[in-house]
Simulated assay, not measured.
Amino acid sequence: MPKLSVIIPCYYNEGNIPVTAQALIENEAGFPADVTFEYVMVDDGSGDNTMRELLRFRSQYPDKVQVVELVSNVGSYNAIAAGMTHATGDCMAIITADMQDPPELMVQMYEYWLKGFKLVIGNRQDREETGLQKWFAQLFHKIMKKVALSNIPDGGFDFVFFDRQVCDEVVRLKERNSNIFYLMVWLGFTYVNIPYVRRKREIGKSRWTLSKKIKLFIDSILSFSFFPIRLISILGMMLGGIAMVYGLYILIMKALGHINAAGWTTLMVVVLFVSAFQMVALGIIGEYVWRGLDAARQRPLYVVKNVHQ
């Protein structure tokens, strides 16, 4: 009897939980009768009535719902890591609490798992959202595919179905300041990609702010690519070459007597340009150093307040 654990990170989702819970229960009808279900709901330090709704869901289905309550908000990826640690299934799925991803797709994902695939990805072929949010998401994944992980699917993804082995490997790594979904691909298991259209959020307001998106972009780039460091090296060599050529030019002009005192503007432009490059380079190196320090301290990714099971 295979056991499927569905992991749902929740943050300010009090309006979504009743709808999501009903959809998940109804979705069980599409699976074979021998499959058992476990829903691991992780409250990521919500300040509304999300926890109340989660406990209500658990009271309705005490044998299959587990609620993990975190002390404070640690981010959706760390909340997912908490859910993976507490999940007990033979296979698992991660889905959002706002119903932007179709639960019925899990049935097809499960069929691929039965065929031996350790990882099944539901990637966003398109989005019902429009405007800047859609553009930012597309740009983010194009850059990541170009400079970090060339084998990730187009369009990005955060709806996955995976084997117990994948879960154990991700939990064992204890990666911080990273992208947990890209980490699954990085492990190297052959995966199946199922494209779908991501729905527009109907209930509540997304807490996925611009600052969080920028942090995710920086974390993903620095975790899976040496491109920023390599770029510094390339730019440094280019600037060094330009400086050498310019230095030879100055020496030649000086020897020919064409150098006068009117060089302040050029000097200031060069100094400001090189100084700006140095500051950017130090900032990128500092990001890597800080991540090394953060990993060396080995602070927990999250702190669990209560587990209701």
Results as ranks from 00 to 15, higher is better:
Val304Ser: 11
Lys146Phe: 07
Ile94Phe: 03
Leu173Met: 15
Gln298Trp: 09
Asp158Tyr: 11
Cys91Thr: 15
Ser178Gly: 09
Gly83Phe: 00
Leu239Met: 13
Trp264Tyr: 15
Lys305Tyr: 12
Gly155Cys: 02
Met84Asn: 01
Pro153Thr: 00
Asn73His: 08
Gln66Gly: 00
Glu53Ser: 02
Leu222Arg: 05
Leu149Asp: 02
Ile152His: 01
Lys215Cys: 10
Glu169Thr: 14
Leu267Pro: 09
Thr190Glu: 14
Gly286Ile: 02
Ala93Gln: 09
Ala29Leu: 11
Val42Tyr: 02
Gly241Ser: 08
His141Pro: 06
Lys118His: 11
Phe189Lys: 07
His308Asn: 10
Glu26Lys: 14
Gly240Val: 05
Ile94Asn: 07
Gly75His: 02
Asp63His: 05
Asn27His: 05
Phe159Tyr: 04
Gly236Ala: 06
Arg56Asp: 12
Ser206Met: 05
Phe162Lys: 04
Asn193Arg: 14
Phe162Ser: 06
Ala276Lys: 02
Ala97Gln: 02
Phe162Gln: 03
Ala21Thr: 05
Gln165Phe: 15
Gln66Ser: 07
Met144Asn: 02
Phe117Asp: 09
Phe159Pro: 00
Asp163His: 14
Lys205Met: 13
Val270Asp: 03
Gln165Lys: 15
Gly263Gln: 11
Pro9Ala: 03
Tyr196Glu: 06
Ile242Gln: 09
Thr85Lys: 15
Ala97Lys: 05
Met1His: 12
Met1Gln: 08
Met84Gln: 00
Val307Lys: 14
Leu210Cys: 05
Lys115His: 05
Leu267Gln: 13
Ala295Tyr: 08
Gly75Ile: 01
Tyr288Ile: 03
Thr190His: 13
Gly247Val: 09
Glu26Arg: 06
Lys213Gly: 02
Pro102Lys: 03
Leu282Ile: 15
Arg127Gly: 10
Gln133His: 15
Ser76Ile: 01
Tyr61Gly: 06
Leu54Phe: 00
Ala262Asn: 15
Glu129His: 08
Asn73Asp: 06
Phe31Ser: 01
Gly236Cys: 00
Phe273Ile: 04
Thr209Ala: 08
Phe226Leu: 12
Ile232His: 04
Ile252Thr: 01
Asp48Arg: 08
